[in-house]
Simulated scan of single mutants.
Amino acid sequence: MVPPLITLEEHFFSTAMLTGSTNSYSEQLKHLPGLSDKLADLGDLRLESMEAGKVSLQIISHAPGPMTSDQCRAANDQLAKAVKGNSERFAGFAVLAVSDPAACGPELTRCIRELGFVGALIDNHSIKDGSPIYYDSPEYLPFWQTAQDLDVPIYLHPTWPTDSMLDLLYTGPTIPLAASKSISSSGFGWHSDVATHVLRLFASGLFDKLPRLKIIVGHMGEMLPFMLERIYQLSPRWGQRSRPFKQVWDENIWITTSGDWSVNPMACILRNTKIEHILYSVDYPFARNEDGLAFMEELERSGLVTDEQLEKIAFGNAEKLLGVKHSKRFD
C-alpha cells in the first residue's frame, strides 16, 4: 500500500492574477478541461482531487507568471486565509515579485514569520527589456541570504520564455504555433531553462557564499540528473569553488517528481541522487493527482525502492525539509 502522500508543486490562481491576463496559459486552458476552475479554487474541488489521489497534505503555491509586489502580497494573504481554514490538509509557499529583488526578502520574511508559510515557489527568471534575468547577480544576494537565514527552501519553478528566447530557439517558418508554445514551455524549454539557472547559481559562487541554502527543482530534477556525471566532469573549469558540484547537488538541491509519471527517469535518479533529496509532487491541476498515485503504485511494484525509501519519497523527506506533518491516512 502506498504510504501517505505530501505534494509541493500544487498551484492556484490568485484573485490578483485572475483580474489580469491569462493568455500565457492558452494551450493549457484549451487542452485541460476545467483547469481555470481548479486553479481558482482553494476549497472543495482541490480537496476532492486530493482524496482521489490519496494526498494527505498539499503545499500550495501560485502558478507562474509576472506579478507586482502588491499582487504578490495580496496573493499570499489569500493563500494564508485558505491554509488557516484547513491547516490539516494545506500549507503554503510564498509567491515573490522576482522582478523587484529588493522586495523579495522582506516579503519572504513576512510570509514565514507572520503567515506561517514553509518556503517560497518563484518564477525561474524575471524579465527586463524583453530578456530573461536570472538570480545569480549581486542584487539577488540579499534575498538568497534571507532564505538561508530563515532556513526555508526556495522552489525554482519554470516560467514562460521571453520574446527573445522564443525568437531565438522556438519559432520558425515550419513550426506550428501550438508546437512553438509547447516546446518552449512544458514540452521542453521550461526544464532546460531551470537546469541552466541552477548551473548559473553554482558557477556564480552562490553556494560558496551561502552553504546552507536550500533549492528545490521539479519534474524529476529538470533534466539535471541525466547530465550529472558530465557536469561533475566539466564544472571544475568554471572557476575555483570550495565545494564541487557533486557536493552541492548532495547538500543543497532537492528534486520532485512533479508531473513526470515514469519509473524510467526515477531509475536514473535513484542511482545518482540521495534518497533523502527526492520528494513526491504532482503539479496539480496541470497534472492529475490520480496519475501521481498510479505512478507511486508503479514505483512500489517496481522493486527500485524499499518500503522505507518509498516512505521517504512519499512524505518523510518533505516533513523533514519543510517542518510539516501529514495528518490523514487512506485505507
Rank of each mutant, 00 (worst) to 15 (best):
Q247H: 08
I269R: 03
R243T: 08
L206G: 01
D250K: 09
L228W: 11
R271Q: 15
F226P: 02
M266A: 13
I231F: 13
G259C: 12
D260R: 15
D208V: 05
Y280H: 13
W238H: 09
P236W: 09
L206D: 02
D260H: 15
D208M: 07
A267T: 12
H277V: 08
K209D: 09
L228H: 09
D283V: 06
R271A: 13
P225A: 07
V282F: 02
Y280S: 04
F202E: 02
W261F: 15
L270S: 02
F245N: 07
T256L: 03
Q240F: 06
S242A: 15
G218V: 03
F207T: 04
M223V: 07
T273H: 03
V248N: 03
D250Y: 06
D208A: 09
H219A: 03
V263H: 10
P265S: 11
D208L: 05
I231Q: 03
Q247M: 12
V282T: 15
F226T: 09
L210S: 07
I253H: 06
M227H: 11
I269Y: 03
L201K: 05
S281V: 07
V263A: 07
A287N: 14
G239D: 09
T273G: 07
A287H: 09
V248C: 00
N272W: 02
T256N: 10
N264R: 14
Y280I: 01
F226K: 00
R237I: 12
N264Y: 15
T256D: 12
M220C: 08
V282K: 01
E229G: 04
G221P: 04
L234P: 01
C268L: 06
D208Q: 07
I216A: 02
I269S: 06
H277T: 09
G218H: 00
R230P: 06
T273E: 05
I216S: 01
P244M: 12
W254I: 05
I269D: 04
F202M: 08
R241T: 13
S204R: 10
I269E: 04
W261K: 08
E229Y: 13
A203N: 11
G239C: 11
K209C: 07
I278E: 00
S242I: 00
M266R: 00
L201S: 03
S258A: 15
N272L: 06
S258L: 11
S204E: 06
Q233L: 06
L213G: 00
L210I: 15
G239R: 07
L279K: 03
M220W: 02
D260Y: 14
